[in-house]
Write a protein that binds this DNA or RNA. Structure first.
Lengths: 226, 226
DNA sequence: TTATTTCGTGTATTTGGTACACTAACTAGG
DNA sequence: CCTAGTTAGTGTACCAAATACACGAAATAA
């Protein structure tokens, strides 16, 4: 077969990539980070950030590295989502994609294009452009997983800064669930879960009563509640 | 590099395998199917059934094929679990393992060794032998996932024959949860879920009152309840 | 007919979720 | 400094779901 290439195996091997669905909340909307492809296939089309696995790194490291390379973003919540393997999902060769979903607070980051991304930008989930490969399907699955975890984990806190008000937190839930929630019930529910601690400081914004601010008791871990 | 091998790529590619954690309930115990490896590495050691991905099949087809080849088992519930990628998890070369977990009723099958398995056998989760690769970790994760799904899906029904009594069903739950359940509450809960239908037939075994038998309303799908 | 075994059922209590409206605290503007 | 405007913060009544708990019914075997 192809004897002038460099890495040879007795049996055929697929290529392995990671793709990352990074969510944030911006402009009162759930948004996802996309990059515009600088190279074929699907050149100039929008796609999830991601890339080929290096031989020395594991998949999670690969996902983090690609996010950093293509967008400059790091230090976020990352969780393996699903592995996609339809034989013809990449026109170049057989590619297995191990997908991750990630969350970040919207305030800290400014995506910037780099490496093989021409451009990186946030898109509202309701206004996605046409996407390369099977990436539209991957985003749908990621959203489904995020929503499924909302009510029995502390995952939503990953979308907020370190300290926040209960109203901000409620807004996050309302955006994700796409429905209004009752203020008293929401607050009572949060009390029951015992995952928040008052900071003692107040948030003074606008011409109205200031709000107490809170932080998550265990900020590093996304806990499964109940 | 290695020019006398057949499949060559401009960049290094990992090998991709599937491994399957197949659970059943036998002897009042949660058991897992293992095969004894016929070839190195870890020759003669027990391991999960699985093997390398073919280029024309997707991962789920691979998992099914390997189960069939190595154990003769088919037609069961199968769900993707997690993808393992520690760089040195296989001493031969870089191997990515996409793992699945599967459930089957204990009555229909007799595992038999075949292809590169010397032998296939059921092991109680509490008495596992030393396992090849990182397979012990994979089994632990599969069990965790199974337990997490117990209370909000119909997954447990996959461990019973087509028709069964409520006592049999309760026993399955008790084995999985490792605790006694209250009979009346268990039955009331099943009624609320509306996933069972009476067959109209009775199960007559032993010197005692016969039990009504039931079947799942939607036998093909594992439904998420609530 | 009696002993033994498993099957099948109801009620009272607790707990978690939902529906619902007003006062408190601040700012801006007159 | 008073008023209007805005968001923060709180309690109670009701309903649904989960829990604790005990005994008669239906079969077989001796």
């Amino acid at each position: 077969m192809n004897q002038d290439q460099s890495y040879c195996y007795p049996y055929p091997h697929p290529a392995v990539t990671t793709d990352v669905v990074l969510f944030t909340i911006r402009d009162e909307d759930l948004q996802v980070l996309l990059i515009q492809r600088a190279n074929p296939p699907f050149r100039e089309m929008w796609a999830l950030p991601g890339g080929f696995l290096d031989m020395e790194e594991d998949l999670e490291a690969c996902a983090k590295r690609e996010l950093l390379e293509e967008t400059g973003i790091e230090g976020l919540y990352l969780e393996q989502l699903y592995t996609f393997s339809t034989p013809d999902r990449d026109p170049r060769e057989r590619v297995i994609s191990v997908t991750y979903f990630a969350l970040t607070r919207s305030d800290t980051l400014q995506p910037k294009a780099a490496s093989d991304a021409q451009e990186a930008a946030w898109f509202s989930l309701t206004q996605l452009p046409e996407l390369a490969f099977d990436h539209a399907k991957i985003i749908q699955l990621a959203k489904q997983r995020l929503l499924a975890k909302l009510n029995y984990s502390t995952i939503a806190f990953q979308l907020l800064p370190e300290t926040f008000t209960l109203s901000q937190l409620q807004t996050v839930y309302e955006i994700l669930l796409n429905e209004k929630l009752d203020k008293r019930n929401f607050r009572k529910g949060m009390q029951t879960r015992q995952v928040l601690r008052e900071t003692g400081k107040l948030s003074r914004t606008g011409n109205h009563r200031p709000a107490k601010t809170y932080r998550v008791i265990n900020p590093t871990r996304v806990e499964i509640i109940k």
